[in-house]
Design a protein around this nucleic acid. Sequence first.
DNA 1: CTGAAAGCGCTTACAG
DNA 2: CTGAAAGCGCTTACAG
Lengths: 335, 335
Amino acid sequence: MAVTIHDVARLAGVSHTTVSWAIHGHPGITEATKARVFKAIEELDYHPNYLARSLVKGRTNTIAVVASFFSSPFEMEVLKGIEQRIHEEEIRYGINLFSTMNDSERVLREIVNGKRADAAILLSVSPSAETAALYRANGMPLIVIDEEAQGSKTIQLNNRRGSRLAAECLLARGRKRLALVLGTSGGNPGLSQAERRRGFEEALAEAGRAVDPSMIHFIEDYYFEEGQTLFARMAESGPEGIPDGIFCAAGDMIAMGIMLEARNRGIRVPEDLSIVGYDDIPSSALVSPPLTTVRQPLMRIGRRAWEETVKALGNPDGDDCTIIYEPQLIERGSV
Amino acid sequence: MAVTIHDVARLAGVSHTTVSWAIHGHPGITEATKARVFKAIEELDYHPNYLARSLVKGRTNTIAVVASFFSSPFEMEVLKGIEQRIHEEEIRYGINLFSTMNDSERVLREIVNGKRADAAILLSVSPSAETAALYRANGMPLIVIDEEAQGSKTIQLNNRRGSRLAAECLLARGRKRLALVLGTSGGNPGLSQAERRRGFEEALAEAGRAVDPSMIHFIEDYYFEEGQTLFARMAESGPEGIPDGIFCAAGDMIAMGIMLEARNRGIRVPEDLSIVGYDDIPSSALVSPPLTTVRQPLMRIGRRAWEETVKALGNPDGDDCTIIYEPQLIERGSV
DNA sequence: CTGAAAGCGCTTACAG
DNA sequence: CTGAAAGCGCTTACAG
């Protein structure tokens, strides 16, 4: 059905080897022959089969991007950065999305073992030490964003610092009953959320305050509605349970849900309740009141991830390194 | 380096054929042999090479998702729907992202010709008639969302209707100087934007009003900031140029940019200016004032796209059909 | 019940 | 300057 290299060879009156040489600019093919080959290629609209080519070259020109789920603005922004940067490249690379749900190890091994990509970029997904070693053994670069990974390149966002900034901001406003909202990914909290918790606790401790465990809440899906439900729960646990300051380390989307539900219940932001989010998604500046939040340079991180990938592709034995990006507190009206 | 079927065969003391049979549950392999094979597979941590398997089977278990650029909430929502639905499937399918920038034909042909996927879902990308025919000839299903495509399955969003709803809403508010903001994708407006324009013009015509050509504006990148810049331009073209009603068919993100810039310039929404957006992204309900907009069931469309893909994969000669989803006007405070 | 052989569509040393 | 041959790692009729 599809036209193969043999069809081209037949039409051009050469061997398929010559066709391959011509395509790859191998020196020592007459201009005349080349012309005949290209004419045949044109005529038949021939395109090399990507699978066959990849199989023999051991290279797919594809890069795997792995996340628990591609639903939050976090993944989308980083993805955008990767995509943007890839397009500046000469060689065309494809992006292969893998969502791990709650079985990241299986997916990660499937990618290396099945040779499904030339490299993998993980978003908030942490490979086990064995899996990282497996990638290394197979010469497949692994770039880990926002998680820990022994024996891989890592791009960290200083979550602890971001969280401290948020907590300090709430404390500076004289907030007493502080709540913390954390996200989970595929069941467990993950490094970034753990670090944010730590930063929060440290900031409180330095201010001579302890964290009330009943004021730490968890969400799962990063949906806006979860924030609403969560705040409803807080509010209904009696006046004692209602915080006057919330740091929503689970992100702006959830923070907005919380804010809407608070407004619906007649609780004024920021008079009665200060809210700080995380991520600074585009709409954070637009909600009412505009959301104070911690901004991370996600697009830049996506771009950087690609650059590190290219470096690693060119030099498989390159050193592992950790790149840390600093967050920034964006103060707006919600505190 | 990597372990192949031959390594397994050697260790299990059988031929590689038998290993393959065992893996695929071919009838007529002794339980004992099977056990030996699986033990060897386990021991070596063998995983079939995806490329080799795909090459010989002529099937990649991968689906291409094509868009001009994966940057707007539109693509993200649809993608989310596809991803969600795929995960309910028994067979594991991978998602391969292709951004076409402004050369969609080249990318589309590369996908079929290079056999890079089993099927393709296009988001607001329109294949030429020849390309659609090429897909058909290669037995590769093509599902086109929000664009026209002769000879392919099509999932349409009734853009004309949505636009009418928006225009009628503005007219009902007694707005006189109506502006229309349209998006473009890769240079040209695309079907959806054209349809929105048409719906807008029709609604105005029915109200005995003509559209002022100088009040039709275009944006390109769907970035928030473009909305700001655009409104600044409108405002600076003199009082005559400032509209009292804007239908931002280019989406909520741009509408929000417009709204922010209007606010910055002391123009009150909705008192001085009514704004209607398109898409109903999560934050639209949260901005101040909350944005009136046209909602499209994007996640559902993503899910449906996958369902149609599966159907087409099972029955390559299935009829082409057009599925139309109706939009819904969500009235909020911005009009 | 199991193995030898051909083939998927390509690339690339190796001869001539 | 060009072709015959081997091989990438699999699957699957076909024999035995």
